[in-house]
Design a binder for these strands. Structure first.
Lengths: 154, 154
DNA sequence: TATTGTTATACTCTATAACTATA
DNA sequence: TATAGTTATAGAGTATAACAATA
C-alpha cells in the first residue's frame, strides 16, 4: 500500500504515456491504425476466435471490435466465417496476407523499440512488461465491464 | 538490448494499457475529462506558465493544448492573462477554484488506485513509476516533435 | 520573417442504444 | 427471453493547415 504522493506521480506517468502511444502509432503503416494492429496481433498470438472473445482480449466493447474487424477484413488480412456450431457467431482467422502483415508490424515496432530502448537491459524491459501486465490484471478484475462469461482464463 | 519476442510482449502491454486509461477516465467528474485534468495537474505541479510550455509538458500540439485550456478556463479553474513581456503570449494560472478541483481530482484518482493496487508494495509502485518515466524520456529525445526551445530541463 | 496562439477541419478510438438473427 | 453481432450516433482526443497578432 503506497502513499498519496506516489499515486499522484504514477497518475502523471499514466497521462504522459499517451505521448509514447502516439509515437508508436506514427510508425505504423497508414492503412493499419493501432486498432487494426491490435486485432491482427491478438489473432496471431491466440489463433482463431469469435468476436466476443476478441472483444474481451481487446478490452473494448464488441461494437468497437466489430468496426476494427470490418476494417481488417476489408484489407483481406482476416476472414470472418460463420460458426457452424452457433449461427449467430462468426469465427475470425488470419489469412496468409494477414500473417505477412503481422510480420511487417512486428518488424516495424520491434525496430522502433530497439532504437528507442537501446540502453535498456533485457531485465529492465522484462520488468516493465511484467509490471504493466500486472497493472492491467488489477484493473480487469471486479470491473463494472466484466464480461458475461465469468473467469475466462485463456 | 532485448530480443524481438520481448519487444512484442511489451507492445502488447502498451496496447492493453488503453483499458487502464479508460477505467481511470471513468472515475473523473463528468465536467473534467482527462485532458482538463492533465492541464490542472501540470499547472498545480509546475506553477504558472505559457501555452507553449504547457503544450511541451503535455507532449501534444499547441492547438490541442489551446482547446483543453479553453475548456478549463470556461469552468473558472484557470485564468489566462496576457504576458506583459510578450504580447503574443498568455500566462496560465490556477484559480482558487482550480486548486480545489485539483484536490478533488487527486483524492479521486488516489482512492481508485489505492483500491486497485491494494496488494502492491510501495516499492513496486515506485518501480512502475520510474520505468514509465524513463520510457517516456526515451521517446521524448530526438523526436520529430522536438519543440523549438532546445533541451529544457525543468 | 518568425513566433505565439486560435480556429476550422478531419481522423481515430470509444461507448450507448437500437436493431437483426439465432439460441 | 437472452445472446452474438452490426450499425447509427455522439463524444473525447489528436494533428494539420490557415489565420491573426506580435516580435
Amino acid at each position: 500500500m503506497a502513499e498519496q504522493a506516489q499515486y499522484e506521480e504514477l497518475v502523471r506517468q499514466f497521462s504522459a504515456f499517451g505521448a509514447v502511444k502516439r509515437e508508436m502509432g506514427r510508425t505504423l503503416p497508414s492503412d493499419c491504425p493501432a486498432g487494426s494492429a491490435a486485432v491482427l496481433t491478438l489473432l496471431s498470438r491466440h489463433g482463431h476466435m469469435r468476436m466476443s472473445k476478441l472483444a474481451e482480449l481487446l478490452a473494448v466493447d464488441m461494437s468497437v471490435t466489430s468496426r476494427h474487424v470490418t476494417h481488417v477484413v476489408e484489407r483481406g488480412w482476416i476472414e470472418r466465417s460463420p460458426d457452424p456450431a452457433d449461427k449467430r457467431s462468426r469465427i475470425l482467422r488470419l489469412t496468409p496476407a494477414g500473417e505477412a502483415q503481422v510480420d511487417r508490424l512486428s518488424r516495424c515496432t520491434t525496430e522502433m523499440l530497439a532504437r528507442r530502448l537501446s540502453d535498456w537491459t533485457d531485465d529492465e524491459v522484462a520488468q516493465l512488461t511484467r509490471l504493466m501486465a500486472r497493472l492491467r490484471s488489477c484493473f480487469d478484475e471486479q470491473s463494472p465491464r466484466t464480461p458475461a462469461t465469468p473467469a475466462i482464463t485463456q
